[in-house]
Design a protein around this nucleic acid. Sequence first.
DNA 1: AACCGCTTGTCCACAACATGGACAGCAAGG
DNA 2: CCTTGCTGTCCATGTTGTGGACAAGCGGTT
Lengths: 262, 262
Amino acid sequence: MAEKTVQGAQVVGRVAQLLRIVGRSPEGGVALPAIVEASGLTRPTVYRLLNSLAAEGLLDHHAETGMWHLGPEIYVLGAVAANRYAIEDLARPSLQRLADETGESAFLSIRRGDETVCLLRVEGSFPVRSFVLHEGVRFPLGVASAGLAIMAFLPDAEVDRLLDDGGARAARFGPAHTAERIRANLEVTRRNGYTVNPGLILEGSWGMGAAVFDRQSNPAWALSLTGIEQRFRPERQEFLGKLLLEEAHKITQQLGDQASGR
Amino acid sequence: MAEKTVQGAQVVGRVAQLLRIVGRSPEGGVALPAIVEASGLTRPTVYRLLNSLAAEGLLDHHAETGMWHLGPEIYVLGAVAANRYAIEDLARPSLQRLADETGESAFLSIRRGDETVCLLRVEGSFPVRSFVLHEGVRFPLGVASAGLAIMAFLPDAEVDRLLDDGGARAARFGPAHTAERIRANLEVTRRNGYTVNPGLILEGSWGMGAAVFDRQSNPAWALSLTGIEQRFRPERQEFLGKLLLEEAHKITQQLGDQASGR
DNA sequence: AACCGCTTGTCCACAACATGGACAGCAAGG
DNA sequence: CCTTGCTGTCCATGTTGTGGACAAGCGGTT
């Protein structure tokens, strides 16, 4: 989080931070005070920056509700950038199949630095759903099934670096997120190929995930399923894990097949 | 271009400008000097800002070539924003049909302030192609068939405002872009429904376009076709125009059908 | 080799610019 | 009526961004 920003560019860091905060907010948008709180900046500063960003079209300010959203310019730039980073088209059919066959909600997350960001969601048919995860939500690697699935296939040195945060992660996401318990989970994940999150973030809200690998065989994305504990009993985990791995492999393969140009 | 930036936010404007410049560059990326030139800022400033943006993941700097690209963070944010602005999924099939049936290249552009931005491109089968237009390219409204098609269905006051510089903004893209000639084109466009750009930007490079309307009946997007003059003879224009209008109507309709929530 | 033109990367004195404390105005709730 | 929490704005302050200037690298031309 505390990047050593390039010298002479404080604002750029702040702007990026604000964009991320607004981006990870749920569909209804975020209000100013929440952004102030999340950013740790003073209110006038946030106010001014948000308005400038809105003037550039990077953010949108709903006049009635006062809520802030990502703006059209971000959408436009992102659409252009997507030509270089396209994976969603490949992943969406997999998510649909996962949701259809399991009844749970299925997600695609992408690794972004030391975090995962949820990109796509397909709701399952099962009537009880968790709303911990949705498009734009970020978790540090090691938290939530997507981040665990990815982390399990990172080099040891990387894992060590990520876990060595002096307990900040555990403090934010619950006492279950100690370095030791995460390591144990990664161990099991490496053996099975898929990971299980037994309600670590929110009690009763379970998840499973499997990593998708880029052309250099780095775990860059993850598929995951979420639902309530009762739907993730041990006897069903094997079935769900197999499905996740199948779909993850499919995507990994398709990514490899693509001509490496563009 | 010269927006009255919100007070106390010079950098935000600069940052947004840099993102746009990098975003509209072709696939190979842009080099620093070109960005300096395009932005009108001094080199150290651009250098510093670009590096900060890259540190935040908003830009990407290819180490070998030195080229700048839109970064993963933009992609991620854009993917999240796309939930609010989705049109590409609706438009892609139309573009495909247009390209298949005509052999020309088909494009989707979106209105963004006083410009259009090209979002999607589907190459046609015809072996001679123009590369004036590609994803990320921006033209002022009134230039290129997409911008003309959109402008033709804007309120008169809006049109006046856009042209009250005598077409100076448009004239950057060729001497044919005077206010009078643009008005004449808009006139014809309103009658036909579709617009024809008879090589105004680049001699011999023709285009045709039709507007797509949002739920408030504003022309917010445009479909367009481009190709060489010989493929846009009067007798073929009617055929191409009819196809464009059909597909544009299809998309407009689908947009209207969508539940207005999310 | 010496020179040129063009590039990237870095420094630092200067002052322009972003900053944030403070205040006004408004709406909702007790 | 007072309190709480919000949005929007001002402006003195000094932190922060700025850009002129210089160093160094690279490839081509004479």
